[in-house]
Computed example of a mutant assay.
Amino acid sequence: MATIAILGLSITSSWGNGHATTYRGLVKALARRGHDVVFLERDVPWYASHRDLADPPYCRTHLYADREELDRRFSAIVREADAVIVGSYVPEGVEVGKWALARASGPVAFYDIDTPVTLAKLARGDEEYLTAELIGAYHHYLSFTGGPTLDRLRQLGSPDPVPFYCAVDPDVHHPLDVARDWRLGYLGTYSPDRQPTLERLLLAPARDLSDARFVVAGPQYPEDTAWPENVSYIWHLPPSEHGAFYCGQDFTLNITRADMRAAGWSPSVRLFEAAACGVPVISDTWDGLADFFEPGREILLAESTAEVVEFLNDIDEAGRQAIGAAARAAVLRSHTADHRAEQLEQLFSLRPAARSENTRHPEPVS
């Protein structure tokens, strides 16, 4: 059994971020394989008021108020861990990363769930949570994005950039026998760069198909958003309700952030979640997508309103079920949290082991 310390954006709150779902699946898989995981999370008010998993049962979770408390209470945990992971968008991430590298005795990896966004920020001189110096200092760079982006990370000095894609927890995301209330739906936090695609691939089809029902779920949409009358809006869905939400749709829509679409090879966790539920996905297009799903058989690609309307009008129930089943099989073959946990074991040379109730672990200082 190994001890792994993770300093991440959040595992306790999924409000307005996809990190929590990703961390929960990964940590749960690591625990199932016998590892002891400690998750250290900055206590911030916007997550404190929206915690949907305050005490995850598969890891030891500790909140800290600032870097002084992080150093005072958790130095021993990081020092004695077999491996340490620092995530993207951690508050004061540069200083936290330097602190982890200085305290850890084992390898320290940077887990970038936002790689194209990170590199775009660095190109603008924005060093919110990472610097070029830190890229070279981290022992491994776990990149949300594969393809040519890995070469870019090597050019920036990373000694070991590896594709570490998001993944899905099949215990949470699987087909459910629920009423299908919506013809097409979308789950995602509002972002200005995605909104034109949402307009083109969901809101415009909803106006064309006024007898069908559509749905959008996610926080931070402007109050003046013009929703068509046949589009329902759900402000926030906790991860526990994502599966039923997807399974309540005939088709679901995947929209990719602009930076990630430009980089390619950047599947989102929402894409894998929907596919694992056996729901056929209509997605925008980007380089590398065919490495994850076979277009036309496992996923449907659209760039125009007319293409979406054609899919909704022309694909019968048998075709719908076949695409959903093929997508689910593709995810279960290669993109579950257990696949990522095994990848971490290989990267850090860790061995899976059964849990021992008598194992003693370093505890935080009071």
Rank of each mutant, 00 (worst) to 15 (best):
S10N: 12
G16F: 05
G18P: 00
H19T: 15
T21F: 08
A29P: 15
A29Q: 07
L30E: 08
G34Q: 06
V37W: 13
V37S: 09
E41R: 06
W46K: 02
A48T: 14
S49M: 06
R51W: 06
P56S: 03
C59N: 02
T61A: 05
A65F: 04
A65N: 06
F74S: 01
V86A: 03
Y89G: 00
E95Y: 14
G97P: 12
R103Y: 01
G106S: 03
D114Q: 04
D114K: 02
D114V: 09
T115W: 05
T115I: 04
L119W: 06
K121M: 14
K121T: 12
K121H: 13
G125M: 11
Y129T: 06
Y129C: 12
Y129Q: 05
L130P: 06
A137K: 13
Y138E: 11
Y141T: 11
Y141C: 05
L142G: 03
G147A: 14
G147R: 14
D151N: 11
Q155N: 08
Q155R: 11
S158I: 12
P159M: 10
V162T: 09
V162C: 01
V178L: 00
R200I: 06
R200T: 15
G218D: 09
D224A: 13
E229W: 07
S232C: 03
P239K: 04
P239Y: 07
E241F: 03
G243K: 02
F245W: 13
G248Y: 09
F251I: 09
V269K: 00
R270Q: 02
R270F: 02
F272H: 05
A276F: 03
T285E: 10
D291C: 10
F292N: 05
F292H: 15
E298Y: 06
S304E: 09
T305S: 12
N313K: 12
D314I: 07
D316R: 06
D316I: 14
R320A: 07
I323G: 03
G324Q: 08
A325H: 09
A325I: 06
A326H: 09
A330D: 10
V331A: 05
L332Q: 07
R333P: 00
A341E: 09
Q346W: 01
R360C: 11
E363R: 13
P364S: 08
